[in-house]
Design a protein around this nucleic acid. Sequence first.
DNA 1: ACTAGCCCCTGGGAGC
DNA 2: TGCTCCCAGGGGCTAG
Length: 273
Amino acid sequence: MPELPEVETVRRALEKRIIGRKILAVESNFPKIVSTPSFKTFASQIKGSKIEAMFRRGKFLIFDLSGGLSMISHLRMTGHWLVTKNLPDSKFIHLKLKLSDGHTLAYSDIRKFGRIWLIERQDFALFKPFAKLGIEPLSKGFTMEAFSGRLAKYKNNIKQVLLNQQVVAGLGNIYVDEVLFSAGVRPSRKVPSLTKTEILKIFKAIRRILALAIKHGGTTVENFTTPEGGTGYFQNKLKIYGRKGQKCYNCKGTVSRIVIAGRGTHFCKSCQK
DNA sequence: ACTAGCCCCTGGGAGC
DNA sequence: TGCTCCCAGGGGCTAG
């Protein structure tokens, strides 16, 4: 499932290959993939525009287009972007953008959870999914003060709070488990029970693990691939996620799996207090 | 203002 | 082998 490091990996790969290209034609077999505006409006507005820049905010990808428009994409569970001259014939490809250099920029999504939006750049502030988005964890604004200040609002368990995009933008199920293992904190711990030292450990782990995961091109579980069709490498570095029943790397214990907030949650009973 | 529960989807694994 | 059932999972939405 694409989280911040996977989305950043996609952004970097796309940036190298599509900036400066014009969108010549727009096609879809599933118009609902475009959330707003209507697909018809979307298609007519982006046709002929040039892709000028690419950004990421949390798990959102932003394509800045000429004419003051931004196309925004969220991959949710199984979304992919592909750039290719030989597009495979796939029922999972829901959007095809023919580019001026002969490549097709295509969006594929098995479960169709992902969504695409088109907004006027001047209306960025009105774009609802961004309005409540939390701190960008790799930005300068992500300080221990800012982080603990955000946490102070919540009484829930730390796993659920870290999954909440209003607190820190971009963490998902895999990296929350990895962060809490690294920090030695049980996912079920209520936020008010955390000591300052524990919060500091979580804070540092967030930055360290996300940066490391980006360095390794993200994590491929389920079916994350880069726009070139390659996989990430961070799955080989996972210390706790998906390791139910296996030996903890830190101690002789066994990795446990429980469900918190409807998410599979992995932790070590002896290493995480 | 925060929290719980439901919903969207499909491939794949479990059970028979 | 092949059928049916059920589940994961991000985030939007509604209700409490």
